[in-house]
Design a protein around this nucleic acid. Structure first.
Lengths: 234, 234
DNA sequence: ATAATAAATGTAAAATGTACGTTAATTATA
DNA sequence: TATAATTAACGTACATTTTACATTTATTAT
């Protein structure tokens, strides 16, 4: 794969596959996206989703994990396939499929130095600049998927620290759904689901009184899931 | 692409992409799957999802439509990407990604002759034989997606004729969800959604009395959809 | 005319969702 | 040391939806 650009015959004659990652984070009440400068011609240097070619001997999933680790230092992150973008003319350089995958990371955990070194940058989701190829479309699709999926599954929690407060969680849902939620009903609904473990620690960064921290009870959740239980928040 | 099997160097050195279709139908109260005999080595002649290599100059979506038309004669069918199967070793012959797409067809509309000519066959979903590679897994994943998606969107209707009765629709939901539904509550819920148009024709194939035929009001539905409406049936 | 059969309608209780008002805990400050 | 300010937490009444179940209706084969 090293001489992709130089071996013109093979470039035009082959099918390539890229793994592109839509990396979401949540910070200061905002949903964010991590992007970097594209590393291959054409359009080298332009803003792009973080991605890489899938190597011949490598699983698609592995390729996505590889770049994610390379840029953020993170492993074992929530990542899920979004969809494959397969228009024949989507990339002017190659015939290249992109298998897009979205990742949800805890923004306090990534390796800042590494991110900086690769020229990557976090943008507010509503201020993402123009990206190469169909990458803006991928971001839109990923957002829609996140919204859809968050309604019935507790995936949003992957964007928060392990210990979080209910007001924090509400704020997260508010940015995902892009609408305000009633804090009293939100709390009531959430607690009725019986999958939060209340700790006796408080987070006092946002109020004098402080808000209790909670952990999500994955064990119980997965058991309930089996018997057709839905983590539904609206 | 014609000499894939003969040009050994390129075969081992290239990435291929296949479009595999999970084709669902609904007939006599059963959910069915259309499969055929694989046309390429290795495993030529074994039961397989209906698929084809994606040509270099062809969109992935086009490839899927192409095979679907080739085998069933159908165009303009509901089809949606399921996911891409990208394990490096999933196909012992090539490095080949499979972009799996599921289709929902009205089983009374396909071209029987064409299907027969290609050695394709409808199997009850609970009696699908062993398929090549990871195709059985694809079927399971597609089923799960269908179940998930049918809860909130009226995609099941793509499996029924344009005119259908409420008992028919209920039967469809029952096979999709694999559970019995209360007919009184089903009807009530369905009609409350205000997206069925009652015709003044009856279908008398199942009872002396006959059941009224309905059409789905896509126009109204799509308007409601915009304002955050959910076609939720459980 | 009657029996048989699936279709269609109805109703009451339980559960869930919605829209609010009130109280509690904490600390900076006066 | 008391008070003000602020967010967290709890509660309640009403509306809507879901659930569980019984009855009536239209049709035709006998």
């Amino acid at each position: 794969m090293a001489n992709l650009e130089t071996d013109l015959y093979s470039v035009k004659d082959k099918m390539y596959a890229a793994a592109d990652c839509i990396i979401f984070g949540f910070d200061s009440g905002k949903l964010k996206l991590l992007i970097f400068r594209r590393r291959v011609e054409p359009l080298k240097g332009e803003w792009s989703l973080i991605g890489s070619f899938v190597r011949l001997e490598e699983d698609v999933t592995e390729a996505a994990k590889r770049v994610l680790k390379e840029i953020t230092g993170l492993e074992n992150v929530f990542m899920e396939q979004l969809k494959t973008y397969g228009k024949a003319d989507r990339d002017p350089g190659f015939r290249c499929l992109s298998i897009a995958q979205y990742a949800l990371i805890r923004i306090d955990e990534y390796d800042e130095e590494l991110v900086e070194k690769h020229g990557a940058h976090w943008y507010n989701i509503d201020a993402v600049p123009g990206l190469v190829l169909d990458h803006n479309k991928m971001v839109q699709d990923a957002l829609e998927r996140l919204r859809q999926k968050a309604r019935y599954q507790p995936i949003g929690l992957n964007l928060l620290p392990e210990k979080f407060t209910i007001p924090q969680l509400q704020q997260l849902y508010e940015v995902i759904y892009q609408k305000e939620l009633d804090s009293r009903n939100f709390r009531k609904k959430l607690l009725s689901l019986k999958v939060l473990i209340k700790l006796d620690e408080k987070d006092k960064t946002n109020s004098r009184r402080g808000a209790f921290l909670y952990k999500f009870d994955y064990k119980t959740y997965h058991e309930l899931e089996k018997i057709g239980y839905n983590f539904e928040i609206s």
